[in-house]
């Protein structure tokens, strides 16, 4: 069944404390919070659009832009950093000919992220929503093959 924005909004009372959860949900379902949807959210919560955008653009788990199909995240937390997560980033950059942090590639995005709290199993990489633990630079090729 198709989930519409209206259906999502109706799950939440139009109270301030529900704004962030609603935005998170919209972003999770549609991939991002579009201009039109933000307008509807603002209307539903009786807030100025600027306010909705201000909140939406602040948080990592709310996207405000359409996302590429392939999103690769590599943890750069202290634990992952000392176990060579930077080399993993470099390896992915070389293999896919992309740059970490480049927002303008329509197909793939490589993001360096903060700690996910999986430090015991690091270095950690996340592709779309699948988590890879104890990743090594040498193992990057094999992981990427699953997705390309």
């Amino acid at each position: 069944m198709l989930i519409t924005l209206e259906k999502i909004l109706l799950e939440y009372d139009p109270e301030a404390k529900n704004l962030l959860p609603a935005l998170e949900k919209i972003s999770a379902v549609f991939g991002y919070v579009s201009r039109e949807n933000a307008r509807k959210v603002a209307d539903y919560f009786s807030l100025p659009e600027s306010k909705v955008y201000e909140t939406a653009s602040f948080y990592d788990l709310v996207n405000i832009k359409k996302q590429p199909n392939l999103i690769i995240k590599v943890c750069s937390g202290t634990h992952c950093a000392v176990s060579d997560s930077r080399k993993i980033v470099e390896e992915i950059e070389n293999k896919l000919h992309i740059k970490a942090g480049d927002e303008n590639n329509p197909r793939v995005k490589l993001e360096i992220i903060s700690c996910l709290g999986r430090c015991g199993e690091g270095p950690v990489a996340v592709i779309n929503d699948k988590v890879y633990e104890r990743v090594t630079a040498g193992g990057v090729g094999e992981i990427l093959e699953e997705w390309i």
Partner: peptide
């Protein structure tokens, strides 16, 4: 909201 790098005790 544990998010200090290297910390996962609350998890």
């Amino acid at each position: 909201d544990e998010s200090e790098p290297g910390t996962y005790k609350d998890r």
